[in-house]
Nucleic acid binder design. Sequence first.
DNA 1: CCTTTAAGATACGTTGCGTTTCCTATCGAA
DNA 2: TTCGATAGGAAACGCAACGTATCTTAAAGG
Lengths: 197, 197
Amino acid sequence: MTETKTRRRGERLEQAILDATWAELAEVGYTALTIEAVAKRAGTSKPVIYRRWQSRAHLVVSAWVRQQPQESGTPDLGSLRADLVWLFTRVADRMAGMMSETIAGVMADAFKHPEVQTLLRDRLDSAPLTGVIRHVVDNAVARGELRPVELPRMVLRLPLDLVRAVAVFYGPPVPDEMVESMVDDVYLPLLKGLALD
Amino acid sequence: MTETKTRRRGERLEQAILDATWAELAEVGYTALTIEAVAKRAGTSKPVIYRRWQSRAHLVVSAWVRQQPQESGTPDLGSLRADLVWLFTRVADRMAGMMSETIAGVMADAFKHPEVQTLLRDRLDSAPLTGVIRHVVDNAVARGELRPVELPRMVLRLPLDLVRAVAVFYGPPVPDEMVESMVDDVYLPLLKGLALD
DNA sequence: CCTTTAAGATACGTTGCGTTTCCTATCGAA
DNA sequence: TTCGATAGGAAACGCAACGTATCTTAAAGG
């Protein structure tokens, strides 16, 4: 038998579909992604997919969630600036990796599907990133580079918003000068300004 | 004659199409906007539209450009904070007016059409908004609220990026507390931090 | 072993795409 | 005023993907 004419079910099948989705995403992007292509690539059929996900947006978000890497350790490179550059670079790289085209597409579709919007928002709000930011700032405080400062939500979400905005407008990858500008012209001055009180 | 069976050309026709586009946009949004519907509403036909614009994205950007209001005067409400709240609120309102759904949709489609991306970027980079920001800051400096400070590009684009991010993620309208948080937690501290040197 | 569940294949009607064809109103030059 | 070039309007096209319905049959479990 060259063909494993097996019929998958449950978890195995689902994972195969999500893998196929991810592969399609990488190959043709979000806008051009079709359910039919995903079905074919996964070796299954449309109804199987529609039985599990309401829409392309739902499917893609599922695939994305599974792909999410867990947070790697936080840096301590000896200076606040160095840590911030590292952090922003990391965000920019990840953004380039899973195309901003996908993000833009999903965000657009999310208007049709409130649950997707919610899911996406929660996923990005509670991002492990905020933990890293806090950690980096704490280190700077410990080093005496910065006076103790509390970080409002809006400040915590800023890195992601900024990188996303630039990536979507200029297309990835985000150039190094832009990343440095985010740090030197925005985030560092902002932290210093917050620490004034 | 109840019917003006006239056949429009050139500028008149073009304007009618753009008006129809804008109306459709307001009614069904970007994602659901179809060229056929625009053609019908404008009382013309698809080929006429395709002769002028390559895609839905091009068409919508054209319509949007025509609709762009010219900048109203800059404020001077007596304090930097008040001016900034006014400014951010204005940005948020405009964002709510021409749906963030449209922005998200166009941005997503822009990946397929580099000229659209360029057009959009230029339009938003050179936004009259940056002039207003400079003016507001100058006034604060003149009042003695702030030491003289130069504003990097990244700082100038921040208001638009921030409001857009929030509008797209939470859906419009952007709540007042969010606007105030942008001013109190981000922009004001940032300006003060920049003015430290 | 026999029942239940759902995978996989196929086909369906629908919608909007972007294009082509054809006819004729409008415009500008002669 | 006439005539030829230009371009608007209407209709139809083939195509692609949508989302659904139908049917057969493999897998899972008691």
